[in-house]
Amino acid sequence: MHLLGKKGIIIIGLLPALLFYILFAIYPIIQSFYYSFMQWDGFSEMTFVGLDNFKELFQDSLFWNSVKNNIYVVIASVLGQIPIALLIALLLNRKLKGVRFFRTIGFLPVVLSTVVISLTWSLMYNSKNGMINQLLQSIGLRELAQNWLGDPQWAMIAVLVTVIWQFVGLYLIIFLAALQNVPDEVIEAAKMDGASEWATTWKITIPMIWDTIIVAIILCISGSLKTFDLIYVMTNGGPSHSTDVMALYMFQETFSQLNYGYGSAVSVFIFFFSLILIFIVTKVLGKKMI
């Protein structure tokens, strides 16, 4: 038993997982860095082009358009998903009747396949016979009806609503779990001191789950930066690039247009962009996360 010592056992235990992690996560990232300096169509010889891919990238208005749209996704997720989830979690934490029922309903979108969600929402948004426009018509608000996914002005907003709806449940569950760990004694003590509900929520409950909120925000940001599948199915970046996001742009450049080098440059950009954004958020919110 003393042959290897405790550390040895830990290393052996970690080894398989670590090897797979290096092979399937770290190595491809390094490879992307390498490809981003190349001009390569996937089959023929690679040629080294230095920073040309990045120079092109920074001048590419379609790419900046996708960055802009991606920032919308981040903002909508952080400002939409988190507050809504927190609000519902606080409500559900008040020992309501049917908490489990509401919890299940809230969590349902998270377990549904994204493709199912996207197709269902596309049907709802359809301008001719979609549920939303028909509802507006039936209550006499015909002029509010829009070609939701077909109009570049509305498409991004329509997609964002779906994005928010899809992930509220996830953060709801995370917040509910955190709220259940807030000790009752603290809340009771506050009440005995005459604190109002409002004060207890803001001064006690929220600070006690602040760590969880930050984790949720970071999950939310990194999730939004790699958002792909929902938009791919709902609009495929269209109409006329109005819902393009970075990952989608990278996918199309790489696999439809066979610019592996350029596509890799986009991935490298996403990598650093996420890293910097998360770094800033942790600094601003004043917590050490990494």
Binding site: S122, Y125, N126, S127, K128, N147, W148, L149, G150, T235, G238, P239
Partner: peptide
């Protein structure tokens, strides 16, 4: 064309 041409 049908008005939803860009979404179907």
């Amino acid at each position: 064309f049908n008005e939803d041409m860009n979404t179907i």
